[in-house]
């Protein structure tokens, strides 16, 4: 090969093809998709909690994309129906995730709505789920000798409660739990048509 112009232009055409297939056409297909029925924009507390979720890297162990029933038993585990593009209409950045070191969280707000459970579980996961490998997040909480009037005090199992102290939630922990409680994609959507080739944004 002798001509660098041919080389580079050829290479850029190849990249343009890949960009159109994986970025441009999906953009045209789904960027203005309608939110799923019943889906509301996140509140500001939920959005702050979403930032904590991102900052803590929850996405590296938890997906937010239950697979279809015919593919995997995600529904049977209580993780919810397969999601559609409209379920993510308010998600920026997306948090689909690619790892399930922990369970899928797309419907954790339905499965585990209790604020007490969520807060305590963040403080010490192994007090609630024996054998869990989720890290504890003590830096989202504060230990005090006595709680103030407006403090959110955790109801911890005796095994996890520090002796002679109370554990109170910092605002980040409360926001994060608001976000987790908001994760709910359980409202019915139009099922995917039988022919998968014809689905996509339209389903």
């Amino acid at each position: 090969m002798k001509n660098e112009l041919k080389l580079i232009s050829g290479a850029m055409v190849m990249l343009a093809l890949s960009t159109s297939a994986l970025v441009v056409i999906p953009y045209l297909q789904v960027h203005d998709v309608k939110p799923s029925p019943g889906l509301k924009p996140y509140t500001s507390a939920e959005l702050r909690g979403r930032e904590v979720y991102i900052a803590s890297g929850c996405v590296y162990c938890h997906s937010q994309q239950p697979r279809p029933k015919e593919m995997a038993p995600d529904f049977a585990r209580g993780w919810g129906r397969a999601t559609v593009a409209g379920d993510y209409a308010y998600d920026d950045p997306h948090l689909l995730g690619t790892s399930r070191t922990g369970p899928d969280l797309m419907n954790i707000g339905v499965r585990q709505p209790s604020e007490d459970w969520q807060l305590g579980h963040l403080y010490q996961p192994r007090a609630y789920v024996p054998g869990s490998t989720m890290p504890a997040f003590p830096f989202l909480f504060e230990r005090k000798a006595r709680a103030d009037k407006e403090d959110r005090v955790l109801e911890l199992p005796p095994s996890a409660a520090p002796a002679g102290q109370v554990v109170v939630a910092r605002p980040e922990a409360l926001d994060l739990v608001r976000y987790l409680q908001s994760l709910n994609r359980s409202t019915p959507v139009l099922a995917a048509p039988a022919d998968p080739a014809a689905s996509g944004a339209t389903r």
Partner: peptide
Amino acid sequence: VHRGVEQATM
């Protein structure tokens, strides 16, 4: 520019 599912493909 990117958001939602399209952002995941990107």
